[in-house]
Design a binder for these strands. Structure first.
Lengths: 209, 209
DNA sequence: TTTAAAGTGAACCGAGCGGTTTATCTTTTT
DNA sequence: AAAAAGATAAACCGCTCGGTTCACTTTAAA
């Protein structure tokens, strides 16, 4: 084997740099993280870092992008699940919450919100890789429900926005502003169950004659 | 009258400093705002600023606190309104949205979220003066509805969290991360109407026999 | 009019930042 | 073994920032 990994040949420490940056950025935010911190965490020299990334912003963007992409993969397959609508919704909602209320998920959110003015592209990257992605899947699910006659929804876009919002009721904001830790599974289950109840109660076609 | 304003005697420029700080902090965030910028905006010397506030953090805290307190006053009286529950909820929701989706409201939110790690007390101040305050009023409204027999709610706390969340469906996040501007009144009306619909549909006791 | 407090402006300080350079060492390729 | 590419450590640069100092002027009360 004369071609181990070919493409990624240039730069043995690339992944190391990225991992160190991830660690420090997620811990300290963009402004809070100094390049020297990152270098130290990555176990790499400053010159090496700057040979991969032209500046701190680009490095940060790369970390943020990877983080978003990596995390939203987890929620894909679930939406395709066949079965009882209520069960699917519950499953999707639970998974959604477990991610974006997690420590990493919330930290990404904090940074994106806090730095979106300094990085106009950052908001878009985050949104497309995360919320918009899930929303798209959710819309498909709802549209299928409407076509099947199980749901009656005037504005599917709005409904697809309402559902995730309901799922984080009372949890997202307090965590975002540091008032409490991430919720237990039980807490998530409680909020999700009520969200699904309310959502279906409003949009599900009544079966009783 | 030999006592014009007595208490606030010490320091003629206090309000000036605070106003300048408000302007710059809300425009540039905490890290983005330099003390020299603030001094310039306030039309005051640096020494004067530091004679009032021991450091930048304290000045920022004061601005944030004032901003929260000032804004949440607007939503109080509405909840006390008598009349059709649907109308009251619609009114309250509209007012809520108009504030925290406004430019100032969102900017405060961005800063609080972005800086809550650096300022542990900041999140608490913001929450108590803003969201928690409104939530408390909302809970009272709902409790009254339950006692009147108009509503059937198992978990009032949860319901009081769900309602505001529903009202900002699809609006809050995109604005927070800089993807779009504040919504028009029509947009707010649309989302609020649907939120009230869904909420009452779930929690209102059915009248038809 | 005197006097004390409040405010000014500008220079200054030390620290930390992002980023560059250089001279040297290690690894890989040939 | 030689050469080319990658990585290193540390010094260094320019700049900005938060915060201080000081000699001086303005304000307002007595």
């Amino acid at each position: 084997m004369n071609a181990p990994q070919d493409v990624v040949k240039q730069g043995r420490k690339y992944a190391q740099v990225l991992e160190g940056a991830r660690e420090v950025f997620l811990r300290d935010g963009f402004e809070g993280a100094s390049v020297d911190d990152i270098v130290r965490a990555a176990g790499v020299s400053k010159a090496t870092l700057y040979s991969y990334f032209p500046d701190k912003r680009l490095l940060f963007m790369e970390v943020a992008k990877c983080e978003c992409a990596a995390q939203s993969k987890g929620a894909i397959a679930l939406v395709e699940t066949k079965g009882d609508l209520r069960e699917v919704l519950t499953l999707v909602a639970t998974r959604m919450c477990q991610f974006f209320l997690s420590d990493v998920g919330m930290q990404v959110y904090r940074i994106v919100v806090g730095e979106s003015q300094r990085f106009p592209e950052l908001g878009r990257e985050f949104h497309d890789a995360g919320p918009a992605y899930v929303r798209e899947k959710l819309r498909n699910l709802l549209r299928r429900g409407v076509e099947d006659g199980r749901l009656k929804i005037d504005d599917i876009d709005l409904a697809a926005d309402q559902f995730p919002e309901l799922c984080k009721a009372g949890l997202h904001m307090p965590i975002a502003i540091g008032l409490r830790d991430k919720p237990s599974d039980d807490e998530i289950d409680r909020v999700v169950a009520s969200a699904v109840d309310m959502f279906l109660n409003h949009y599900e076609v009544r079966k009783d004659p």
